[in-house]
Design a binder for these strands. Structure first.
Lengths: 130, 130
DNA sequence: ATGGGTAGTTACCAATGGAAACCAGATAGC
DNA sequence: GCTATCTGGTTTCCATTGGTAACTACCCAT
């Protein structure tokens, strides 16, 4: 490292300055992934999202939607209906990501048993050692 | 599973009691993903992992490795060498997951430009509104 | 005028994450 | 013997984050 070198090697996710890392941080956001997955079958309203996800607070939902919108992954549309309707939907860019996210949920569903077994075995070994 | 009611619908990641959610939470862990990606080409020692990832603290690395080991995604092997050598490697189960994680990094690398553009456009609109 | 629906924001508090110090055991240098 | 350095962590403390619940604001129905 002789020079300033802000020339982020695109393949290197370890460099905190590498923009790829920002994207990875978005994936590494509990709620963002869940929100995107909830939107994959079409637009959903704010309170409807909240009810579907269940465990999310209004604050975190609002915050998560804002950052997803900022990143161009979700778009917001407000309609001047009786009580204001605000619909959130995935952008075209997000569609490709959803496919991968779906693979993860499928992997998770397929391996959740093995993971739970591993946990039980591990905890048993722990208890034994204690 | 003779237990009362925790009959989690396996397809429902929204139920906080659903075990799939636990797996998703593991993916939704910034460091866990980065650690697994670092281990994908073979076993790596503790301090070596720390140096490669760079931005991670010892505490978080230790914590992350422990939970990955508990979930059966990473295995730990200690060798009685001069200074103790501890190697971490991905388990067979984790190999399938790595493939999907790799797709995410590839997606991220391909779309990081569009995301940064979206952010800039969004921030410009924000500033204008203010 | 009270309750309920819409979509959020705000304030306050608990939990999490990060920085840096510290621990334990052994080797190497002076 | 004393200090430095390597290994792989643990502990401590503080800042940031996330969650809970209350509040805004507007409109409709009873």
């Amino acid at each position: 490292m002789t020079a300033p070198t802000p020339l982020s090697r695109t393949g290197d996710a370890y460099d905190p300055d590498c923009p790829t890392r920002h994207v990875l941080d978005r994936i590494g956001d509990k709620w963002a992934v869940l929100v995107m997955l909830t939107l994959k079958d079409g637009p959903v309203r704010f309170n409807d999202l909240r009810r579907r996800i269940g465990a999310i607070s209004q604050k975190m939902l609002s915050q998560t939607l804002k950052s997803l919108e900022r990143d161009g992954l979700v778009s917001r549309a407000a309609y001047a209906t009786v009580p204001v309707t605000v619909e959130y939907r995935l952008t075209d860019m997000a569609q490709g990501l959803i496919g991968i996210l779906d693979q993860i949920t499928r992997w998770a569903e397929g391996h959740v048993g093995a993971i739970m077994d591993a946990r039980r075995a591990h905890d048993a070994r722990e208890a034994e050692a204690a």
